[in-house]
Amino acid sequence: MIGDRLQLIRSFAPLAFLILLVAASAVIAPGVLQPDSIIGFISDAAPVIALVIGGTFPILAGSIDLSVAGVASVTGVLVVVLNPVFGPWTSLVVVLVAILFGAMQGFVHTWLQLPSFIVSLATLSILSGLALLLSNATAEPVPSDDILVGILGNSVAGIPNTAILLVLIVAVLRLAMRFTRFGRDVYALGSGERAALMSGVNGFVTRTLLFAISAGCAAIAGLFLISVTSFSSPTLAGNLLLLSIVGVVLGGTAISGGVGGLFAAVVGGLITAWLRIVAVIIGVAPTAQNIIFGLTALIAVALTTERKKLGVIK
């Protein structure tokens, strides 16, 4: 079957690309595969991977969440600002708030039937304003008594705790996708929304959950970021908006929905994070990386979009 083979290529091409990328950079700069560099890579890659995982979920159902970078930034700010109130448990509270916020966003998107891009673009604007307002546009050190951020800064048996948490998140989401109704409904909505609704899928609850997951992952990405820098700034995740979308499409998840998944998200996140390393190796200035990521995103989208399904392309 031609369809089968295409499917296979779509799921394994990104992995092959990742392996090639790593191999090539190892040839140019053998140091990148040293244990130290790998551990450095993991803490560098963790925020991106978390954002990509979160961003993948709405896209699987054909929506998009452009607010993830904003959520990550506000998370960092809130961990500092709310510390006097919630003490050591602040970051946990903030993650819960973020999940609630995401759920609200999904709810507004489905209940009012507003396109997700405009809802999340609006919340991105609100969130970036909020981050500036709450922090008074200054970077602050992260309080040392915050338990979650403290844990994330450490490692167990040489493995950074960020990596362990990431694996845990992936495992939980994987189980939910495979063994609950939710997982199946997500793909149903993405591959044919009308048919899914006519089959009794609850589009409302499913979408709300998707955006809750997306915001939750973004908040955790925010924690990863401040655990590395130990400073929180209102523009912490400012340039990660594009990276999160790039990661989603590079993993093979189609922007048109219904194709892709967690595996693709992890691979896409790794590719994106590794591309940043490659950029450093071959001497692209960090500021110019945007060109590379913009172009790779366009190429990946050109290759993976199912144009027939979209009908009129706006």
Binding site: Y187, A188, S191, G192, A195, A196, M198
Partner: peptide
């Protein structure tokens, strides 16, 4: 457009 989920498997369409 209303009966089937084109990209999903036969089983999945049956159990959705």
């Amino acid at each position: 457009s209303e009966g089937m989920l084109p990209g999903r498997s036969i089983t999945e369409n049956a159990v959705i």
